[in-house]
Design a protein around this nucleic acid. Structure first.
Length: 211
DNA sequence: ACATTAATTGTGT
DNA sequence: ACACAATTAATGT
């Protein structure tokens, strides 16, 4: 499927023909492998991604390797952090990793400023901002009010949704990083969930039974 | 098929 | 949190 068709299919109801044509002309179509780090802390961004297929995980990260999961980007989404970073040439304070195989459209930052003259584009950008903000608020809420057991369950359920499979290829250590806790704690909680019949544990894999 | 090794997972203190 | 044991997957012989 060529890019024009993908744009047509995914965005024709959102953007006017003229803008779609511009996106077709200026954007670069990219396919990205699972687990590719798209954005790391400290990197400058020159392109803004518009999601077509797959999912990207966005985390707040610091130098010592501490991380917190903020939100996932899905088709039709764009990254709000990128917007601000692009516009004022700021260093990125987040990390973005491809959760699945990802297909996306890379748009040069210069263009995304130009396009603000389109009403549909402004709406798209604003709505995206709004969505990301809400998701971040939820992440903060979870962090503040849920205990680790609840956060873990939520994390697993979320992953099942995003990956659209109950077979999650994860190590306990990876989960621990993303919830920023220790591997031992994750292991214990997962074991408990397994005893309760919620999940089944394998090496490098967690199978979620009911959700 | 077997032994070796590295990584992941489990558990007691 | 730490230390160690057990298990599993990967690799070489």
């Amino acid at each position: 499927m060529n890019m024009h068709d993908i744009l047509e299919q995914r965005f024709s109801y959102l953007f006017e023909e003229e803008l779609l044509a511009e996106m077709d002309a200026c954007g670069t179509y990219k396919e990205i492998d699972r687990d590719t780090v798209l954005i790391d802390i400290g990197s400058y961004l020159k392109n803004m991604p518009i999601m077509l297929e797959g999912a990207i995980k966005v985390l707040k990260a610091d130098q010592d390797g501490n991380e917190v999961l903020l939100y996932y980007l899905e088709p039709g989404d764009t990254c709000a952090m990128t917007l601000t970073c692009c516009l004022n040439d700021q260093k990125s304070s987040i990390k973005a990793v491809a959760e699945t195989e990802v297909k996306l459209l890379m748009v040069p930052t210069s263009k995304m400023e130009d396009w603000l003259t389109y009403k549909s584009w402004r709406n798209f950008v604003f709505e995206s901002y709004n969505n990301r903000l809400n998701e971040m608020l939820e992440a903060i809420d979870d962090l503040a009010f849920l205990n680790l057991q609840e956060r873990l369950t939520k994390y697993l359920k979320n992953s099942v949704m995003i990956n659209s499979t109950p077979e999650l290829s994860l190590t306990h250590q990876k989960i621990a990083y993303e919830l920023n806790t220790s591997r031992v704690v994750v292991s214990r909680l997962l074991k408990k969930l397994e005893k309760e019949g919620e999940i089944k544990l394998h090496r490098n894999r967690v199978e979620v039974l009911h959700f």
